[in-house]
Amino acid sequence: MRLTNIFNNKSDLLSVYFTAGFPELNSTISVLEALENAGVDFVEVGMPFSDPVADGPTIQGSSTHALNNGISLKLLFEQLEEAKKRVSFPLILMGYFNPILKFGVERFVERCVECDIQGVILPDMPYEIYDEKYRHIFEKRGVFPIFLITPQTTDERIKLLDENSSLFLYMVSSSSVTGKSSGNNMQQLAYFKRVAEMKLKSPVMTGFGISDNKSFKRVCGYTNGAIIGSAYVSAIKNSVDIESDTLSFVKRIRG
């Protein structure tokens, strides 16, 4: 399934982030299967890094845990190769730049292609550096970056990122880290409206701080759907039955 098809055919999309190698090293595949069975539209697989500056305590904790379990990019790609035989919804990778740099950017993109990874979110990679140094490597192989916009991003920059997006824009709901509840304030509403009124060419997904049916519904009113991370990571942290916990989590969110 291609991401673009999903955006063309469906609204109120639900996308979930989870940390690879968490809670167990080999959970990656079972979590993916559980998410697909629960009807999640697509997934961001988190590549753990020990110093994730944009993430709150939940994802930071799961990343440390996964690294202690022994996860690495190399291992993750092996897991994803297996996963590709078992799930068919679109997969995106999300993570910090250094492990990719060390792995080799070309080799990373190559492995993405082999594992059917359609896009990547690199929160600490500014657009300018991507554009100047790495764009050709990614575009040549049809793996596309997803850029983040925040309440501080100017209209001009949003337009630039929109024009250079092939998949979707990731709208960060507030100027904060992941896992902090998205305040229900006027400022945020004004931001949602501002972006909606820009009539961007790219679909927009909202993330950071979405944790229940109410916050999910709210952002679906303005954008194509929501990305949920910390709330899901917490839900499976001590789970003994990931399959059924995932199912009830997704039910609760969709309402």
Partner: peptide, 21 residues
């Protein structure tokens, strides 16, 4: 160390084979 990124900048960095500090 080998060149890498941490805490928002690129520098020589003591890091593992897989890019973790």
């Amino acid at each position: 160390g080998k060149p890498g990124t941490i805490h928002g900048f690129k520098c020589y960095l003591l890091q593992e084979e897989d890019g973790q500090p």
